[in-house]
């Protein structure tokens, strides 16, 4: 088992190294894309900045607290987009018939699909995320201690799991249909875009939805309350770990999809 994991990780790193070398064949376009990624989320930041210039706070959250929150969400999202892009572009892979190639190779299909793409250009967003994060860390007035640092790590882990799960769902659905999958954007890009504010400001229904259906709130709102010292119960801190369970139904859907593919061939 340990050997298998080691081999899989080795293979994945091999894939990544090929992607990085491929991208470096087109340096100009790579750096331009990095810039583009940066500009895109910089606009979002400008929106936040000017709204806070006018209103100073939202539902009790200050500018610095919101940046801390957005920094973490954006890190999760850009990391997930970096390594789980293979899921995101899986519909194209199915359309071009390249999944057949995956199936004739003696490795797990998931590993090969993840390895099929690595979106290094997301470091553009990552850069901004890190800047906002550290600004938030130092200016939000959080009293940092070991448990709070652990909470941030849990948030990153859980958040990446939720986004990965969503990309995985998108990939699984493309076994059944290739049209209309854009609606998944609501959950992936929508979550990263609107996850800039603590989910609580969107009202109770959305909070419920993001607690029990797609567990964003578990990785964003509840642990954030713990960080800011508004809740002290340990469950708020551990909530992101609960969100890891989200990957289970995603994996089941994927298996179901592969089965469908091998019986319908399209």
């Amino acid at each position: 088992m340990a050997d298998r994991i080691k081999k899989s990780v080795g293979l994945y790193i091999h894939y990544v190294s090929i992607h990085v070398r491929s991208v470096m064949e087109y340096k100009t376009s790579f750096w331009l894309t990095v810039m583009g990624q940066f500009f895109m989320s910089f606009n979002v930041f400008l929106g936040i900045f000017f709204l806070f210039q006018r209103f100073h706070q939202v539902e009790g959250f200050t500018y610095q607290e919101v940046l801390l929150c957005y920094g973490i969400v954006l890190m999760e999202f850009s990391l997930a987009e970096m390594y789980a892009r293979g899921f995101g572009e899986f519909p194209g892979m199915v359309r071009r018939g390249e999944f057949d190639r995956v199936l004739v190779r003696p490795r797990s299909a998931v590993l090969q699909v993840l390895g099929s793409k690595f979106e290094l250009s997301r470091i553009g967003r990552m850069f901004q995320a890190v800047v906002m994060f550290f600004y938030g860390v130092f200016k939000s007035g959080v009293e940092w201690n070991f448990l709070k640092i652990l909470t941030v790590l849990f948030m990153l882990l859980g958040g990446m799991a939720v986004f990965t799960g969503l990309f995985w769902i998108l990939a699984s659905l493309s076994f059944f249909t290739l049209e209309g999958l854009e609606f998944m954007n609501v959950f992936t890009h929508g979550a990263s875009e609107y996850g800039k504010y603590p989910i609580g400001i969107y009202g109770n229904k959305i909070l419920l939805f993001t607690t029990f259906v797609i567990p964003y709130a578990l990785v964003q709102y509840y642990p954030l309350l713990y960080l800011l010292g508004r809740r002290t119960h340990w469950i708020y801190m551990a909530a992101p770990l609960l969100a890891l369970l989200f990957l289970v139904p995603c994996g089941v859907l994927w298996r179901f999809g592969v089965k469908h593919y091998t019986s319908s061939g399209s």
Binding site: V58, E59, Y197
Partner: peptide, 21 residues
């Protein structure tokens, strides 16, 4: 559907700011 969700969330953001101040 995407645009609906987008519009709705956008409105919720502005509502939160409106209610605050």
């Amino acid at each position: 559907i995407t645009q609906f969700a987008w519009g709705f969330l956008e409105i919720m953001v502005f509502r939160a700011f409106y209610q605050t101040n």
